[in-house]
Write a protein that binds this DNA or RNA. Sequence first.
DNA 1: TCACAAAATGATATGTTATATCATTACTAT
DNA 2: ATAGTAATGATATAACATATCATTTTGTGA
Lengths: 154, 154
Amino acid sequence: MHKTSLQQALQQAETNCRASGSRLTEKRRHILQLLLESDTPLSAYELAARYQEQFHDNIPAMSVYRMLDFLVSETLAHKLNSTNKYIACSHIACDHAHEVPQFLICDNCHQVKEIGISKAIIDALDKSVKQAGYVLTQPQIELHCLCAACSRAA
Amino acid sequence: MHKTSLQQALQQAETNCRASGSRLTEKRRHILQLLLESDTPLSAYELAARYQEQFHDNIPAMSVYRMLDFLVSETLAHKLNSTNKYIACSHIACDHAHEVPQFLICDNCHQVKEIGISKAIIDALDKSVKQAGYVLTQPQIELHCLCAACSRAA
DNA sequence: TCACAAAATGATATGTTATATCATTACTAT
DNA sequence: ATAGTAATGATATAACATATCATTTTGTGA
Ligand SMILES: [Zn+2]
Ligand SMILES: [Zn+2]
Ligand SMILES: [Zn+2]
Ligand SMILES: [Zn+2]
């Protein structure tokens, strides 16, 4: 992520939190920054290590988990359930409401692409879930793939 | 799962393994049985505990992982990546080839329904993945829901 | 049948992810 | 200033997973 868009995202995160009456503290902001700067999803423990390196401040993993919970609750970050790692939301600076996310996870280089679930998929999912008598609660989808670069190399 | 269908599933598992040239050992069969008898997905450690209770034989978690890997590779069981638990395949006794699975996971009672992904969903996923330049590798989908009973109770 | 090789399992150690709980610090508002 | 709330720290422990080497079991062919 480029410096300008990093700054933009952080600023927008600030604005969003202010609007929702929550506090984007320095440490939470730093965690978000680490996520924004990373090419790949990070675990809580990896974040704690990077925090030490980059901000020269020791931060317990416990606290990182809490900050991640906060960021996720503000839709500034997402948790990938299939890999137990976290990524910054790709749409922090967008003005539209956050859609139901679909994550394409490259199993080779671990890059992740976050896209909105298309209407066609939502409709189809909805139908199959309804037929089974179920009600969707958190319709986040994680698909394991190879990205363009990695599939060419393979 | 009823006793007759349990026996049927175990027998079919035996047949399938024989056909694929692999060995459904007693312990592997017991692990599969525990999965078949369970209403909800189980972790490797939970399986080790139940193994002790039911078969009065101590089995290290390490070994359970290996047996689960075997069962998964034979499509006799599935791993739910979003919960780190395992379930028996619902279609062991079916004669058709195993489809790409879609799991509906009740976040309240933890029951799981395994259904085949509909053509509509596959097409839609395929399209969105392709548009992003990605190639699907393991198109298993896990959706977090409330089951019919739990959604009525809520 | 015996010897050998391959497959499966056991034993041990360690790494990784996550939660529970209580203490302390920082912020907010009266 | 003081009290209440939110955030963070510290510590312990639980839960999930892998690596590696030893041992046992099984299948195969001389
Ligand atoms: Zn997002
Ligand atoms: Zn890649
Ligand atoms: Zn199945
Ligand atoms: Zn339920």
